[in-house]
Every structure is written in C-alpha cells, then in structure tokens.
Design a binder for these strands. Structure first.
Length: 204
DNA sequence: TCATTGATTTGCT
DNA sequence: GCAAATCAATGAT
C-alpha cells in the first residue's frame, strides 16, 4: 500500500489482509517480512496507517520475552492464535505485538507515515499512540478486526538486524529488524550521525 | 500485603 | 548522555 492512495484503495486493500498463515510461521521470518507491511486501523470512513520500518522478535525460551515464565493474565494473548494482537503497558505507554506461533510475538517498534498524515510513529509507544491502540485492543484478531496488516511492495531499503532495545536479559541476541537508513527507525539508530544514503530519505 | 522491575519517553545537562 | 517519571503486573513474604 502506498502513501498517496485514496480511501477507496485503502478499502480494497483492507479487504485482503495478510492471511493467518502469514503469521503462523517461525517468528524471526515473520518479523523480517513484516517490514514494509502496513498496519491499518479503521473506524468507519476514517483510517490511520503506518508502514512498518522496525520490529523485534520475542521467541520461546527467550528470557527477554514476557512469555518466558508461561501464561499469566497479562501475557495471555501471546498464547492466542497467530495474528492476535498482544498489547501491554510499560511505564506510561502501551506497546503492541503481533502473535506468531504459540507464546511468540513480534513487537511493532516503528512505522513511517502515509503522505499527508501527521504524527510520530517512531517508537513502540509512539506507534500505538499514533494508531490509537489501547489496552482494550489486547487480544484482537488482526486478520478479521478493524485493525489489520496489509501487504505492500517489498522495501527498497536493506533489512538489517541489531540487538533489541531496552531489555535487560538476552541483550546480545540480534532480534531487532529494521530498514537500514529509514529516518523513522527509533533510537538508538544503528547507523551513525548521518543517514547512510540519500536514497533512503525518499522512503519517508 | 510488600517490594521490585520494566520490550519507554522526555527533558535536562 | 543520563536520570526521572510513575504504576501495575509479578514474584516474594
């Protein structure tokens, strides 16, 4: 889905979300392939969308995962069907994950804005704030609800991995996936002071 | 019931 | 770059 599309074409795309089998695959693969996909939230004729530019994988047996110690009231939706949304609160902020296989999920860390939209979806909390995701969205089905993931053209930027952000355990695992050079990737950005290529600025 | 901790963000130095 | 904000889920007592 592209940034300058009309509501009509959003509706068309909305009718064909990523199928459940997309999510029911090894989590790292889903994470990598979620880059460039678009998350859309619709309420009536209004909609908001972001093209994912940064995610993190949380795996079974992963001490950094909320599911590491098994199901609890908070993480229950991580054990739901593939394509379930897992929303949790951290400090004063909510973050959203896409459930893949049982007890595993992909944290949505940052997106880029459709042309003409304003907001700041650069960061897990900011992305949820931009999309209007709240705790009450925990457990919704991304295949059938008014919040969906839509396919799109493959990213032009290279996909790179990096250590995950803000965790205290399993810090060394490179389970953060991002579009290299994309200005919407949240901090810390793995490239330096300046963007690695002018070309990537066109992706904003 | 109590203490600890955190998949963040913001603002200040 | 670093620390404070701020609160509920979680695990320990």
């Amino acid at each position: 889905m592209n940034v300058d599309e009309t509501t009509a074409s959003v509706e068309r795309a909305f009718a064909k979300p990523l199928p459940r089998r997309f999510f029911d695959r090894p989590t790292r693969r889903v994470a990598r392939e979620l880059l460039g996909k678009t998350i859309v939230r619709r309420s009536g004729a209004r909609w908001r969308a972001a093209r994912l530019v940064e995610v993190e994988a949380y795996l079974a047996g992963d001490p950094a995962s909320h599911a590491f110690r098994g199901p609890t009231p908070r993480n229950a939706s991580m054990f739901g069907a593939p394509g379930t949304l897992y929303v949790f609160r951290i400090h004063q902020v909510v973050c959203a994950n896409v459930v893949t296989q049982r007890g595993e999920a992909v944290l949505l860390r940052a997106g880029s804005l459709p042309e003409g939209s304003s907001g700041n979806p650069s960061g897990p909390g900011r992305l949820c704030r931009y999309l209007g995701i709240t705790r009450s969205d925990d457990g919704i089905d991304l295949v059938r609800s008014q919040t969906r993931l839509l396919d799109g053209p493959p990213p032009t930027e290279p996909v790179r991995t990096a250590p995950r952000v803000g965790i205290s355990r399993a810090k060394e695992r490179r389970l953060r996936y991002l579009l290299w050079g994309n200005p919407w990737v949240s901090r810390p950005r793995p490239w330096g002071r300046r963007p690695p290529a002018q070309r990537s600025l066109a992706q904003a």
